[in-house]
Design a protein around this nucleic acid. Structure first.
Lengths: 248, 248
DNA sequence: CGGACGGGTCGGCCGGCGCCGAACCGTGCC
DNA sequence: GGCACGGTTCGGCGCCGGCCGACCCGTCCG
């Protein structure tokens, strides 16, 4: 407003909220779209409850988080999909580390996340990209002039129990690209991306694992493959059984 | 890619680049899409050249800026459209200031920017939103399933000297919404938004003013109105009082 | 060839902020 | 009622980083 709509000070102030290791880890944890208590976040980040409390107050005050108090608990979650997108975009600009370096133990956990996870409220990882690509192949989505849902796609979605009309309300885009961290290719976000993920969970085709991880159920694999017109093998999970966490 | 896609530390490190008033103002200045010299940015931000030099080194190192050295000058610009989008998105999340408060002098400069300006490399401000709306009205763009360019739109664009096919290269989205700071409504970004802005400049319909400001030329007003199917009065610039400069 | 100028480096000052522990408050449970 | 527990506030410590001035380097120009 002073000079050009937004001045450096206010922009810096907002960025400063994310410029702290602890607050940043809070936001990344909250990317799963769920509400966390202050204590959970404190433990996850490895800081004292008092420290976490202070950070949360700032994040809420800055508009990035909203809180909901229940009894003696303070639940916080991201203020909305646009904040989630902001964090995602920011994370996407982190320069690639010089050394991929991962421990054996972290590798298996990382592989599970690379296969399938939630990205705020929609599917991501290899599975998310596969779904995205299949929707394009089937003509549900079209990319000739920007990403868009086709009329045929509306009917197809209704067939699997995802009515589109209710999704058009609000200012959230119906479909949106979201660059996948691990695949470096786009997967489907937006209101439809969220609705599709929720539907798959409802149908029991996928279930939530630890953290943001998503697992394909035994029944879900063939069902999803059939619905998307894919060979069942195309949805094969990572190397081996995803359970079987390293000896720990 | 690292452990869990992105950890708090690296995200915080990236955000820290934008969490400084001086660096943030650099980035905002560079949103005009042009390359600035280190000295220009230093003067614009009101810091010593040595200070600016240090900041620029960090921004380049962090991947947000790219530099180009010519003789004794160091030119820097944003590393790409995605960085511009990131800054825009971040700026869009700045909580509304308690007091709009602008001085009389700043008001006139602000009014010019509110009317028309560049947003990295595409049109923004009231003019940008008008163009965006007109393209939807004419059926060049379609929003029934996400923002998309229509087949009819491709032909229409060819008619005004904007071939679409070359724009499909690269990973930049063809069309994309960009929330306008002043209008609080979307204008057109993406490769097409940039191409359209460049074409209007080429045709002499609009010219660059000071900074990011854009002015409609005497010839450009009627030409643009005719092309977009608008009444010439609809494009009236701010000086000649339009219907309500802003909110009262 | 020498001076002017853009820019980079170094050293030092100083303010801001992230952290914790201790004390306090309210909730919920036994 | 009493205790455990989640969360908050406060004071204080320590460090990181933003800033400048002074000095140095390279380019451009007369």
């Amino acid at each position: 407003m002073t000079t050009t709509s937004t001045d450096g000070r206010s922009l810096a102030g907002l960025a400063a909220l994310l410029a702290d290791r602890t607050r940043a880890s809070f936001c990344l944890a909250l990317l799963d779209g769920r509400a966390w208590t202050a204590g959970e976040l404190a433990r996850a980040a490895g800081v004292a409850p008092s420290t976490a409390s202070d950070h949360l107050t700032r994040l809420v005050h800055g508009g990035l988080l909203v809180e909901e108090r229940q009894g003696r608990h303070r639940y916080v979650r991201l203020a909305g999909p646009s904040v989630a997108q902001l964090i995602e975009d920011l994370a996407g600009h982190v320069p690639a580390p010089p050394v991929p370096a991962r421990t054996l133990r972290a590798a298996s956990a990382g592989a599970a996340l690379a296969y399938a996870r939630t990205c705020y409220d929609h599917l991501a990882g290899r599975l998310g990209v596969l779904v995205h690509d299949a929707l394009l192949d089937r003509g549900v989505l079209d990319r000739t002039g920007g990403l868009a849902l086709t009329p045929a796609g509306v009917a197809w979605l209704a067939g699997i129990g995802v009515p589109v009309e209710p999704l058009r309300t609000g200012r959230r885009p119906l479909v949106r690209d979201c660059l996948d961290w691990t695949e470096r290719r786009p997967h489907l976000a937006g209101a439809l991306g969220a609705a599709l993920c929720a539907r798959f969970l409802d149908l029991g085709w996928v279930v939530r694992g630890t953290g943001r991880a998503i697992r394909l159920t035994p029944a879900g694999g063939p069902a999803l493959a059939a619905t998307l017109g894919l060979a069942p093998a195309a949805l094969a999970p990572p190397p081996s059984r995803d359970t079987g966490p390293a000896r720990a």
